[in-house]
């Protein structure tokens, strides 16, 4: 019991120290990335100025997957090692991942309007991200539906892992489906021929997004640990009151 409690305590101390530098680094990188994205990079010969949307769209897509992976790894931690920090990490990652998936979807469709002439195309990539977003919604809904945090964590862990098995299948099947219906995607981003002047802002922004996401995740975990402490203390107090009343 003591070791179980000691770990979150250690985590609280370390994460408290790491949070401020992480946030500061993310802010600096954002400033640099925005400068590169708007002032120091040319317009694409094919996409024109709209290529600048890619500097947030691609990192958001990366974070959408990154946070799902965090959830999947934490889910293993919950089910296999029954580590309380894993529960907390799962819980904190879900809303952040969902938010970035939404950003990816909306920026993608804002890019699509000038490029494709319509806000939404059932393109393989967009469609897979939409399914990923639906899966995030399911995870969030399940968190809400179960009251007890331990049971909720185990239930969500199962769902996350089943979803993780499903994601590559969805990706493959959607690609199969889209070549069936409309031929290959109109445009490939991130191909090997990308110009370094565009790669630089993309990488800086991706790093900035990652640090920002990590800081948010750590902060969320800290809050979650506090929430659990509040919950157990409240329960303890209710018990004491009940005993006093009896």
């Amino acid at each position: 019991m003591l070791t179980r409690l000691a770990n979150p305590g250690f985590f609280m101390r370390v994460s408290g120290l790491a949070l401020a530098p992480l946030a500061a680094a993310a802010a600096l990188l954002f400033a640099l990335g925005l400068y590169l994205a708007f002032f120091a990079s040319p317009a694409d010969y094919q996409q024109g100025e709209t290529v600048r949307i890619m500097y947030i769209h691609v990192p958001a897509a990366w974070l959408a997957l990154f946070f799902y992976s965090i959830m999947a790894v934490s889910a293993l931690g919950t089910l296999v090692w029954r580590h309380p920090l894993a529960d907390v990490s799962q819980r904190a990652a879900a809303p952040i991942g969902a938010a970035f998936t939404l950003v990816c979807l909306v920026t993608g469709s804002l890019w699509g309007k000038p490029m494709w002439g319509t806000y939404w195309v059932w393109d393989a990539r967009l469609t897979s991200v939409l399914v990923l977003f639906l899966m995030y919604c399911g995870v969030l809904a399940l968190w809400r539906a179960v009251d007890d945090p331990g049971r909720a964590a185990r239930a969500v862990a199962v769902l996350t892992l089943v979803g993780a098995v499903n994601i590559p299948i969805v990706k493959y099947s959607v690609e199969w489906w889209s070549t069936l219906h409309q031929g290959p995607s109109v445009f490939r981003m991130g191909g090997p021929t990308i110009d370094p002047s565009m790669l630089r802002p993309l990488l800086v922004m991706a790093l900035a997004f990652t640090l920002f996401g990590t800081a948010l995740h750590l902060a969320g975990m800290r809050t979650e640990i506090l929430r659990r402490r509040v919950r157990s203390l409240t329960l303890l107090q209710a018990e004491r009151l009940e005993r006093a009343a009896a």
Partner: peptide, 8 residues
């Protein structure tokens, strides 16, 4: 929970 898993 289930519909996204049924897509494939």
């Amino acid at each position: 929970l289930v519909v996204p898993l049924m897509v494939p």
